[in-house]
Design a protein around this nucleic acid. Structure first.
Lengths: 201, 201, 201, 201
DNA sequence: CATGAATGAGGCTTCATTCAT
DNA sequence: GATGAATGAAGCCTCATTCAT
């Protein structure tokens, strides 16, 4: 009476994971649906049972990535303490996440690049901005908290937050370009210190 | 009866400029040769008189952009003085360049994204790394100079340089995403200060 | 504990009826098996329990339609009388049938169109010709009967029969095209008269 | 300075002619663009230089056919005389046209079938109705003329016109089905007579 | 030199059919 | 028997590139 039962949500995630590895190698532009299908060990047509189009699949990947990242940060930070520590943990957790996902990190840049594009007036990859904006807001809140408590100088909290995230992103780029190793044990600590204390004597 | 004389180099640059505006809108992946041809007001076939392939055209654009950027920086910095001032000028000049090229800035991200890709074992966009590496080296030299002169703390010069550039890149991304306005007069000054002094009291 | 008993023939007819409505809307070319399945409220796979292929399903529909039409005509005509009356009834019954099946009438044209096609040397829709030929023969017989009885002029009976049926078909087409209303009460009568008496004074 | 010069309109017609022969064999549904391309001796991509899509190509064919038919009728009838003669010539010309295009006649039925279909609320094959309606109007005018002049009985001119055309169409169908030979010399004459005089004694 | 008409390789997507449950 | 998840063959269409003019 009933055909094969399948956890569609789970399989969808499976496919996205496989897609991730493909994207990491070839980027989100120079890949073919058949690549994903093969990586996910399913038929070409099966992909379309879970995604309405190539574009939809890419968007799904992006979404999953952001969700994962935010989830990881949230998990690591909830045990936090004072603003300085929170900031350090946030930096540390970001590096951890990057290292943990070192094999699929390259996609971040494609996602960035795509997130600023418009197609027919619509953002090509909606949700990117929102996700990023949210993170900025949270970090800014952290810094503001520190300013209120008198541990941070009265800097522009939002700008500082942006710079912090910008630094992380930039380092990530450099890492992927092979210019910087981000899996060094001491990097997060050094990074935090430089951000917190500046470089002036 | 002499054949029409054409400054091939000049026309090539013309085409690249036109290409730039196309890339800014549609990215370096979602465009067609005909788009470039139309923007440059030449025939489709003509493009192939100046570029051997689509890929070659993209690479040419990337190259031109880097050359422009480096040239601008060099021009602004040669009048420099002590390391702190040099650093400030470098930051200021970068923002200036970004603002000046605000309409085609989006391509930077495609270039980044492309610069980390390999095709058939070869970097898709050779030269990117080298150009970036060179800038890092110069900034690191600046910082090292400052350390030697006793105006900077003995930080890891190379890492600091990377962080500085990473911050700039990251801000650029945010700007393009509409999250940050980089044409504010005070931004470069604030940015330099935050980088130089950190945020700790 | 006995296995569910299903009247396969009945369900088959059910499905065909549903298919009819789908065909009426989208034609016999631009439809998908899933359309039929949904219309018939069965699963996609179930269709293949009753029809060996898409083609088979179409043929089944065609067959059912012809059978219905012939059945209706036969039923209405058996009470007939003299040739003139028979002819009139035949015309009237045809219009009735058309009106009664107004919602699925469009398929007739697909059937016609399909009936003249060959695929791999075989008629795509066998049986169509035979059914039509049979009707022509009967009408011709009717006319011949009338000629013998001296009520019809000695026309070419077979040609006249063809013309009569051709007129009906053509009117049907016009009706479906929205050019003629065939559900007018007076149409059959006028039609018969025009056919019987011509238009010359 | 200029590339190859081509009479696009002429080439378009060429392609349509080739398409006609393909349609006659396989119908307008069961054919592939590559079929047309091969028949027209051009590349697959070339078709898209002249037609925006498969659908557009079909529509173009339909349009050409109608235009041809109307043109032929107009040409033959302009020399006409009284209504009866005009009607006879119209019938004769139609048969002539059918015979002349005997090899591609099958497409008429596909066109008919298609002309009654709607896709997304839009007629699939616009222009069909209009063309047909126009012909009906002209024939009706003819009959009305005859009535006024007292040579025709006071029949419903429009209905009679429809019936005439319906008969022609129906006969065409029968011809294509192999049931009737329409290239007989005497057919037009007999047909006209039957239509004009009816079959009643 | 410049051009755009012609081309066909390549890829996304559809959908009839199968088959495990 | 009934189902719909899975599949891959098939076909439309795009677009980089060529080349005759």
């Amino acid at each position: 009476m009933s055909p094969r039962v399948v956890d569609k949500a789970a399989k969808r995630r499976e496919i996205l994971k496989s897609a991730m590895t493909v994207f990491a190698q070839r980027g989100i532009y120079d890949f073919k649906m058949i690549d994903i299908a093969r990586a996910a060990q399913v038929g070409k047509g099966t992909l379309y049972e879970y995604f309405s189009s190539k574009e939809d699949l890419i968007a799904g990947c992006f979404d999953l990535f952001l969700r994962d990242y935010n989830g990881y940060l949230a998990g690591r930070m909830k045990s936090a303490g004072d603003p300085v520590e929170k900031l350090k943990i946030m930096v540390k957790a970001s590096f951890e996440f990057f290292v943990k996902n070192g094999d699929t990190l390259e996609i971040v840049f494609d996602f960035w690049a795509a997130s600023i594009r418009y197609k027919d007036g619509q953002p090509l990859m909606s949700g990117a901005n929102d996700g990023y904006r949210k993170v900025i807001g949270e970090v800014a809140g952290l810094i503001r908290e520190g300013i209120d408590q008198g541990v941070f100088r009265p800097v522009d909290a939002r700008l500082a937050a942006r710079m912090l995230l910008a630094s992380l992103d930039g380092l990530l780029l450099q890492s992927v370009m092979g210019l910087t190793k981000i899996n060094s044990r001491s990097l997060p600590q050094k990074f935090s210190q430089t951000f917190l204390e500046g470089i002036l004597k």
